[in-house]
Design a protein around this nucleic acid. Structure first.
Lengths: 137, 137
DNA sequence: TTGCGAATGCTAATAATTTGCATTCGCATC
DNA sequence: GATGCGAATGCAAATTATTAGCATTCGCAA
């Protein structure tokens, strides 16, 4: 994903400096990030974007399907990650909150079954695994 | 689950009127509930339990593993559902927010694989499916 | 029945997120 | 390149969900 400007175009999102910066950060992040972490990462790069703008941009990315939102239990904050070409999920340590990105998603077939059973049109899902990492267990 | 008092005992949770009432509501609920919905359901039954107590009880149930917590997107509230003997997940309509409980869980095998790959000890997961119900699609 | 620690309810505090509004930006048009 | 308009941003204030402090009450064992 080298050209984020075009990526925004493709999704019908107007290009702004802030959106491109945030998209950069998300695309370089290995793991899920809170709004605050995005803010801090921007700060490290010497950029300040107001929190409300970050919230608005994440909401926009979410609505446009660029991003997935979930929560970490025991932590009332939204976390976001970019939807990759190869869609994936995260494993979260309940003690130290470390997160690990997993390869692949086991749900494709399950979703098809559920669509048939329920007459829903399934467009997305949210999956996180919780456990204890080898240090914390 | 006819005897909730014993159920609490088994999990090392002290029995109180409030906990038993909430457990009743959760066990009769087909779907996930917010703290507010629990509060309102109690009101319908002519019972008032303070919101902070409900929060505390849900936190306790969560810690003891009686309950699963997740979020509905576009809605910054925690939602809870009782862990059933037959563990399951929910499908949520992104438009009307209707939720449907699904039978079964497709993740057992996936979790075992992930445990081997990551050296995590996986204890739980969170899965919701999103889509549009037949009225909204 | 009594007593103690834990649970509850109230109110106030906190933390995350959202909103209103003035300013600035992106981009199309001249 | 200059101009203009609607959309995006930043700031500060408002909201909303959730948590914490503390006095009162409850559950249960002795």
């Amino acid at each position: 994903m080298t050209d984020h400007k075009e990526y925004l175009d493709q999704h019908g999102i107007k290009k702004t400096k802030q959106r491109i910066l945030i998209l950069n950060i998300l695309s370089q992040a290995e793991n899920i990030m809170t709004v605050e972490e995005i803010y801090l990462e921007l700060s490290k790069q010497g950029v300040v974007i107001s929190l409300s703008t970050i919230y608005r941009i994440m909401e926009l990315f979410l609505a446009k399907g660029l991003v997935v939102k979930s929560i970490i239990p025991g932590n009332n904050k939204g976390v976001f990650s970019l939807k990759r070409l190869e869609h994936n999920h995260h494993l979260i340590c309940l003690k130290c909150k470390k997160t690990v990105a997993l390869k692949g998603c086991p749900l494709t077939e399950f979703e098809r079954n559920v669509e048939q059973q329920t007459e829903f049109n399934i467009v997305d899902h949210n999956l996180e695994l919780y456990g204890y990492c080898n240090k914390c267990k």
